[in-house]
Simulated scan of single mutants.
Amino acid sequence: MSVLIASSVLRTCLGDGPQTFAALLAGRDGRSPLRPGYPQQLRVAYGYQVDGPAGPYAASRWLADCARRAVAAAGVDTRNVRLACLVGTGLRELSTVEATAGEDLAGVPAHRLHFADAVRAAVPGVGDVVTIANACSASGHALALAQDMVELGDADAVLVCGTDAMTTSMLAMIGRVVDEPTERVRPFDRDRHGVLLGEGAAAVVVVPDHGRPALGRLLATGLSCDAHHETAPSPEGIVRAMRDALTRAGARPADVGLVLAHGTGTALNEPAECAALCEVLLAGGADPLVTGVKGAVGHMSGTAALANLDVALRCLATGSVPPTVGLRVPLAEAAGLRLVREEPAPLPPGLVQIDAFGFGGVNAVTLVGAP
């Protein structure tokens, strides 16, 4: 059984959801020099940062704003609706801990690493609030759990959120795994050099299908956790997640018209993702368009799946698919895939597939359709 997405709110380096989508259609990106204060030794000079100083508990503040607006847009009244909340994140409030390093860490209580306080302050009357720290597919896993909760009657509605702020430790990692510092994210490009971090937050409200207005239909999320390698993706694990999504949705590969790819611009992700798309979709009779957003907003860690979802919903609403910012010459492994580049493309009929893959082979693939 499918459920509905009643609202979606996004905040990226490019602005809110409408501003981000307009920038994507125009082929613009939100890359900027890293904020002052990051060490020179990081070998990272750029990021896709939310405007203004981050400061302590930035991820919580961005999350609270998106959560409040998503609940209001969905028309959910917590006085008579059992609203639960699931927050997907890759880094939690690690940036706040890092900023306090060398000082008294008692000033960062353990429960503030999670987001219950932020959500409860923004959405009075919300029920259970659970934080899922599940790498870069965290908010995709939260979507899967939200659908289960609504279908099983464990909640009348579920607020699904994602949030992440940039951290020095993650910047240090991405700066040390490339031969030369990465200048920009170039998904599916032959000459891609690596990933850069993005930050921001997103929130959607998932509700039962009772004939109410909605932005889209959440059909299914397929999951896999293959533990293939600490960081390297496994095409076989991604294939399992894609097939799981199709099976749960009762859909065929040929039903998929558009893929919002994970597309990190790294040496290993793109060949693995291309191989999985060819094995599952192309071999199954599909010929979808494929696009990605990380060239414009960076890698938003645990928020990545919901950022893709917001863009997918706007594709369904407008009939337009934005190009992959940063893509000039496709890599050889993408032969046969209809990558969207340079100009927006008309949305093909069919479902939209949203890919999100994380370290350790924690994968989530979501299928959505028109309401």
Rank of each mutant, 00 (worst) to 15 (best):
L347R: 00
A155E: 00
T96G: 03
H262K: 00
I238K: 05
V207Y: 00
D226Q: 03
D255H: 11
L24S: 10
L339N: 07
T324M: 03
G175P: 04
Q353L: 14
Q147V: 05
E333P: 02
L83Q: 13
A305K: 07
F188C: 02
G140K: 05
C136M: 08
F359R: 11
S7E: 05
C274V: 09
G302H: 11
V195K: 02
L34S: 08
F115R: 03
T324G: 08
R341N: 06
L268N: 14
H262V: 13
V290W: 05
E343C: 10
G298I: 13
D128M: 12
A64E: 07
Q40E: 14
P271S: 13
P288S: 06
R240Y: 00
A58V: 00
A251Y: 09
A138H: 07
M173T: 14
H299Y: 15
G319P: 14
G295E: 05
P344L: 03
G284L: 01
G127H: 06
P109W: 12
R243Y: 11
V365F: 14
G319H: 07
T231V: 06
C225M: 13
G326R: 04
L219A: 15
V329Y: 02
G27S: 04
Q353F: 07
D104Q: 04
V50E: 03
M170Q: 10
M166W: 01
D189K: 02
T12I: 00
R112S: 06
A245H: 02
A345P: 08
S95H: 15
S139L: 01
P288V: 13
R11E: 07
A54K: 12
Y46F: 14
A118R: 10
G350T: 03
A45G: 07
H228D: 14
V205S: 08
R120H: 13
L196G: 13
V81M: 05
G360C: 15
D310R: 08
R43S: 01
I5L: 15
S224M: 01
P53D: 04
D154V: 04
G175S: 11
L4F: 15
